[in-house]
């Protein structure tokens, strides 16, 4: 999976450089996020600008990260969602669980 990690404003920003998160690569995403949290990086923003498709496994990987960050008093937020990807968060009501930002600037301001 093509991922890029940057540390900005005290947060770990994980850029997903894939068009698709599905059952084929969601496990790798989940492990990457869990490893970050285990290393003490508990404030994470997942940047989804390039992602135009996410399935239930992808949502599950992000939810796993959210729960694990929260358990360590951190937070996992998501940013730059394409409309159809956002609609999957709305359909599953996960938009009530995640902090969702239009872009990274908005995420850092909060």
């Amino acid at each position: 999976m093509n991922l890029h990690l940057e540390k900005t404003n005290g947060c770990s920003v994980l850029f997903i450089k894939e068009e698709r998160i599905d059952a084929h690569n969601a496990g790798e995403l989940k492990e990457t996020i869990l490893r970050l949290i285990e290393q003490g990086e508990i404030n994470i923003i997942i940047q989804l600008e390039h992602v135009r498709f996410i399935d239930s496994s992808g949502l599950g990987a992000l939810l796993s990260g959210h729960k694990n960050a929260e358990a360590k008093s951190g937070r996992l937020a998501i940013a730059n969602l394409q409309q159809q990807v956002l609609s999957m968060f709305e359909l599953t009501r996960l938009n009530r669980i995640f902090d969702i930002y239009a872009d990274l600037n908005e995420a850092f301001e909060t």
């Binding site: 399935d55 239930s56 599950g60 990987a61 939810l63 599953t92």
Partner: peptide, 19 residues
Amino acid sequence: LPDFDHPKEGGMGIFFIRT
């Protein structure tokens, strides 16, 4: 159906298809 107030990692696939 998924528990929307206490979501779990799995179990959303069939929900998507049905919905």
